[in-house]
């Protein structure tokens, strides 16, 4: 890996070099009722809009790579004949400017299922292969447990990663194109003091984590506690609304629906991101529901993320971004659910 350092004033130049492309980044979305600033990923049209010091975004990047609703194919029908037209819905490369480590790790995890060896998903791959990613260091928030999930730093899956050293940025460079971008601005190789400062920043960040999840033996505990009463308690609170899955950067479950156009000569197949918390997720034709209760479904979500995915890929399908807990109106948070399943006192369930 190559490293470079550049002055903070140069950031705008870096932006300008890439501004010929579409740029997505963290932008302000006003404040909540407690005057806390809100951010979300959106298209950026002006450097001033880019909020690299953002706390966290409300939604994940999924809107751009795994849209809530996507047409997989359309059909043209003649009398007894039909044609299928597949469109991957990717038309342009997009620069993602300012992703936190957790969100880049989330993409890397999604790759394992959606762009792995078995039936790689072309709709995802088409968008994923047209991403140019500039990561940026973050400040741990009270709800962040990425460190527990091993997702607080990222080793691959980006083109460039920036760490704020105070008056300059420390850039980790992973792609030739990122290197090319930096050649257009004033930057230099980091010296010993900057190496030192870079490591210090990482250490300072580590100290600021206040939220933790004990993942020791979690896969076994989830098997052992499959019938535990705590699941029912959380199930009673759960609204079965799918909000957690919608804001989650790694939830990819979906449903497919086919519809005929009003003219009866065209039809389309659409996929909708779904959530395993929704009541009909595991319903089969004929009406039998394998997970009829909200606690069955809530438990399944944890089981998939923290056990099933670990079994398949040796890592959890959770990056610890805390979005689900923040967005849940019923205050169901991952750290509390897992603590309760482990039988720990102190969760206020």
């Amino acid at each position: 890996m190559l490293f470079r350092v550049f002055s903070k004033n140069e950031l705008k130049n870096l932006y300008d070099i890439l501004a010929v492309n579409h740029i997505v980044g963290p932008v302000s979305k006003g404040c909540n009722k407690n005057s806390t600033a809100l951010y979300d990923f959106d298209f950026v049209y002006d450097f001033e809009e880019l909020q690299l010091e953002y706390s966290a975004t409300i939604h994940s990047l999924k809107r751009f790579i795994l849209p809530a609703k996507e047409t997989l194919c359309s059909f043209t029908l003649q009398k007894n004949n039909w044609q299928k037209h597949v469109e991957l819905n990717a038309y342009k490369p997009i620069v993602y400017f300012g992703l936190h480590a957790c969100d880049i790790n989330a993409l890397n995890k999604l790759d394992k299922v959606l762009a792995g060896k078995i039936y790689p998903d072309p709709y995802y791959a088409a968008k994923r292969n047209n991403m140019f990613i500039i990561g940026v260091g973050c400040t741990p928030q009270p709800f962040c447990f990425c460190h527990s999930m091993g997702a607080d730093s990222v080793l691959h899956g980006f083109d460039m990663f920036l760490t704020d050293l105070g008056d300059s940025y420390f850039a980790e460079i992973l792609s030739a194109r990122a290197f090319e971008c930096l050649s257009g601005i004033t930057c230099r190789e980091p010296g010993k003091s900057e190496h030192q400062r870079f490591l210090e920043v990482a250490q300072e960040k580590m100290k600021r984590f206040t939220c933790h999840v004990d993942t020791t033996d979690l896969t076994k505990i989830l098997d052992l506690e499959f019938q535990a009463d705590v699941w029912r308690e959380w199930g009673e609170k759960c609204l079965s609304c799918g909000t957690c899955a919608n804001v989650c950067p790694t939830c990819y479950c979906y449903g497919v629906e086919e519809n005929v156009d009003l003219d009866m000569r065209h039809a389309a197949k659409t996929r909708h991101l779904y959530s395993c918390n929704l009541i009909d997720f595991a319903e089969v034709a004929g009406g039998h529901n394998f997970r009829p209760h909200s606690h069955d479904r809530l438990k399944y979500r944890y089981y998939h993320k923290h056990r099933g995915f670990v079994e398949a890929f040796e890592e959890s399908l959770c990056v610890g971004c805390g979005r689900c807990g923040n967005a849940c109106l019923a205050n169901i948070t991952v750290p509390e659910v897992i603590a309760s399943v482990r039988g720990k006192e102190g969760y206020h369930g």
């Binding site: 809100l38 979300d40 409300i58 809530a68 609304c241 799918g242 959530s275 009909d280």
Partner: peptide
């Protein structure tokens, strides 16, 4: 069968 939240989140609204 699901509630409006599902669509509201898909529309990227702030709660």
């Amino acid at each position: 069968q699901y509630p409006v939240c599902m669509e509201c989140k898909a529309n990227q609204n702030v709660c």
